[in-house]
Amino acid sequence: MTMDTKRKRPARYGMVIDVDRCTGCGACMIACAVENNVPPAQPEATDRTGITWVRVYQIHNGASFPENRTAFVPVMCQQCGHQTPCVSVCPQQAVDVDRETGIVGQMPQRCLGCRYCMAACPYHARYFNWWDPVWPKGMERTLNPAVAPRMRGVVEKCNFCQGRLHAARERAAAAGRAEPKPGEYVPACVEACPTAAITFGDLADENSAAAEQARGGNTFRLLQKLGTEPKVYYRSSRPWVHQVAQQDFGRRKKEEIRG
């Protein structure tokens, strides 16, 4: 094995999501489901049992009409870079952080479905297959061969479209390069976002647009104080968005309490 085929330095893939651009259209969720062979919902599924690797939350400033304001916050696996909560808890190493990409990978084939990682994840970015995946008859032809469908009883989550990374790496390998060039590998949600609200790239690469934006002002990360160093950044110029996204939950109003 010669040196030039080895990767030069580990990447730290991450994204910056411009909350001010997100219209909540859901294109990312659909593109993600299509790309990653996430099955359609079972009739009984709800927002609590469904699988959406990326979920667009609607946040409110808490005011009532007409002072109310809303923003959309897409939340996918935040690819925690430090003390990744889900990795250390998995009893059988079905979760790992790829040292070369910084991506937190979930191995459904190794997973026994104990769901401990779900309890550990403060971002609720992990989803359990409560049902066997079912596509309407004939629709299995539209599945993406780059991603294996999961079976019921395992946990899955966003992995920054590993299938696309594989494809990009294969193309790069065909061209004799060990790693795809910046821009050759982009997750489906990033590509699909109609407003280009998501900037994806290697945060370890100072010159990447993602790193630049992450460094820039107006960014925040969810639950920053937990110290998990997520690699998904959010930016907004609206002060209330920062306030709400970083406030503690105790200030929520009573009518929002369910149950």
């Binding site: 998995c90 009893p91 059988q92 190794r110 479905g113």
Partner: peptide, 26 residues
């Protein structure tokens, strides 16, 4: 019954993650 894939429960013995409390428990 609680785990989604009981047939794979033995993976914990085969590929244990020694940092997990659940491994210790198992």
């Amino acid at each position: 019954v609680d785990v989604g894939q009981p047939l794979r429960a033995w993976f914990t013995f085969w590929h244990p993650n020694v940092h997990s409390m659940l491994t210790e428990v198992t």
